[in-house]
Computed example of a mutant assay.
Amino acid sequence: MSERLRKLWNIFSYGDKVLIIINADPDSIASALTLRRLLWRRIQSSAIVYINEIKRPDNLALVRLLKIPLSKFKNIDSSQFTKMAIVDSQPSHHEIFSRFQYDVIIDHHPVNEGLEAPFIDIHPEYGANSSLMTEYLRAAKIRPSSTLASALFYAIKVDTHNFERETSEEDVKAFRYLFSYANKNLVRKIELSEMTLDSISYYKLALSQMKIKNRKRIYAHLGKVTSPDMCVLIADFFMRIHDISWSIVSGIHNGKLIVVLRNDGYRKDAGKLADAAFAHLGPAGGHKAMARAEIPLKNLKAILKTTDDQIIEKFIRRQIEGKPLGPDISVPIS
């Protein structure tokens, strides 16, 4: 790790202004904060910008309680920066990401082809990118502040689902190290901020619309949603039901069909399933226990006569169950 840290530092000079771009969630926020700390006093300035809408109550609580300095991407002039970094993601993961050439890419998702950057460090075996960033901190002999430690600590809890999902020994080591520095009471407040009055209606809709297949798979299509995070929250909620091994929740947002997949992690691979079922239509992939697809509605028009909710719901089930309406895809889901 010391060698990787040296190579990372060598990318930058004191006169650099660094833009760190993320799709804001606990892991990316904590990772960006850590990179910013690693570069402190080694560059002129840095800024963290996010491309998505932060609407999940726990994510809003994270930013508010820890006073994390974030800026919306649309409010920043990227031409004013001399270096670009992306953490907890890769350029192909979003159209906005793909617009830029990066100097640094640090991630834990499966490696996408065609990556180019002076510094690339990707470890899919890690359950959380924050675990990897914690290793950089330790290699730099930087003791994290309570704020930074709390952000990293919470991010590891979230991305490993309290170590119930795929994890590595490195995740455990990072979590144990951060335990001494994190403000656990503050982390608990963030964890309890899961629901708002506005989100309750989506839970009601999901419960009324859900379809259970073979007593182990739940499907729910929410129609138009105010944020893709609602699909994530409800997919995670359904996984709490006894005997359910798969949860597939979808919704429409900003002209895209969002499909969120969750499973119990036992001899399953949500990432491969999402890729096989939907990648021919839009970005799709993820980890063994959690994955996502984002399909532009215009790409569905060649397959579906209409994009009303019932047709879309049927389309998703057929793709997942290996009876696709599109290309010949057959994916084992058991």
Score class of each variant (00 low, 15 high):
Ser208Asn: 09
Ile86Leu: 11
Lys268His: 08
Pro324Trp: 06
Thr307Ala: 05
Phe237Thr: 13
Asp198Glu: 13
Pro324Ile: 10
Pro296Cys: 08
Lys7Leu: 14
His221Tyr: 14
Ala151Gly: 00
Lys314Gly: 06
Lys173Cys: 04
Val104Ile: 15
Ile43Lys: 06
His109Tyr: 04
Asp77Ala: 12
Ser78Gln: 05
Pro118Thr: 09
Lys204His: 03
Ser89Ile: 02
Leu281Phe: 12
Arg215Asp: 15
Leu132Ser: 05
Gly223Glu: 10
Leu152Thr: 03
Arg262Gln: 10
Lys256Arg: 12
Thr134Lys: 02
Lys204Ala: 12
Lys211Asn: 12
Ala149Val: 05
Asp107Ser: 14
Asp308Pro: 01
Leu281Ala: 15
Tyr50Gln: 07
Ile212Glu: 03
Asp16Gln: 10
Asp103Lys: 10
Pro110Thr: 07
Ile241Gln: 08
Ser168Lys: 09
Asn263Phe: 11
Lys74Ile: 07
Asp88Tyr: 00
Leu35Gln: 05
Ser98Gln: 09
Asp25Met: 03
Leu65Ile: 15
Phe278His: 11
Leu281Cys: 13
Phe278Tyr: 12
Leu233Ala: 15
Ala289Ser: 15
Val259Phe: 01
Phe175Asp: 05
Thr306Glu: 14
Leu33Tyr: 07
Leu205Lys: 15
Asn263Met: 11
Gly326Trp: 03
Pro228Met: 09
Ser208Arg: 12
Lys298Met: 08
Gln209Leu: 06
Leu137Tyr: 06
Val260Tyr: 03
Glu321Phe: 12
Glu135Leu: 13
Ile212Ser: 00
Phe12Glu: 10
Phe175Lys: 06
Leu300Asn: 03
Ile320Lys: 04
Arg37Phe: 04
Tyr126Asp: 06
Gly265Tyr: 00
Leu222Ser: 11
Ser45Asn: 11
Ser31Thr: 11
Glu135Gly: 13
Pro124Tyr: 04
Arg6Asp: 10
Asn263Val: 11
Leu35Ala: 05
Ile252Ala: 00
Pro283Asp: 05
Ser146Asp: 05
Ala302Lys: 14
Ser146Cys: 10
Phe163Trp: 07
Gln310Leu: 13
Leu192Cys: 11
Lys298Cys: 01
Ile329Ser: 09
Ile312Ser: 01
Ile316Phe: 02
Val260Ser: 15
Leu325Phe: 10
Ser208Gln: 11
Ile212Ala: 04
Val158Leu: 06
Lys67Gln: 13
Glu135Arg: 14
Gly127Trp: 08
Asn59Ile: 09
Leu300Trp: 03
Ser131Arg: 04
Pro283Tyr: 05
Tyr126Ile: 02
Ile68Glu: 10
Pro144Arg: 06
Asp27Leu: 01
Lys298His: 09
Ile11Asp: 06
Phe119Thr: 00
Ala151Trp: 00
Asp121Lys: 08
Arg262Glu: 07
Asp88Val: 02
Asp88Trp: 04
Leu197Ser: 11
Val260Asn: 10
Ser247Asn: 08
Tyr203Ile: 07
Asp77Pro: 08
Ile234Asn: 01
Arg37Ser: 12
Met290Ile: 15
Tyr14Ile: 12
Lys298Ser: 13
Ile212Lys: 06
Val158Ile: 15
Ala61Cys: 08
Ala174Ile: 02
Glu95Cys: 00
Leu62Gln: 11
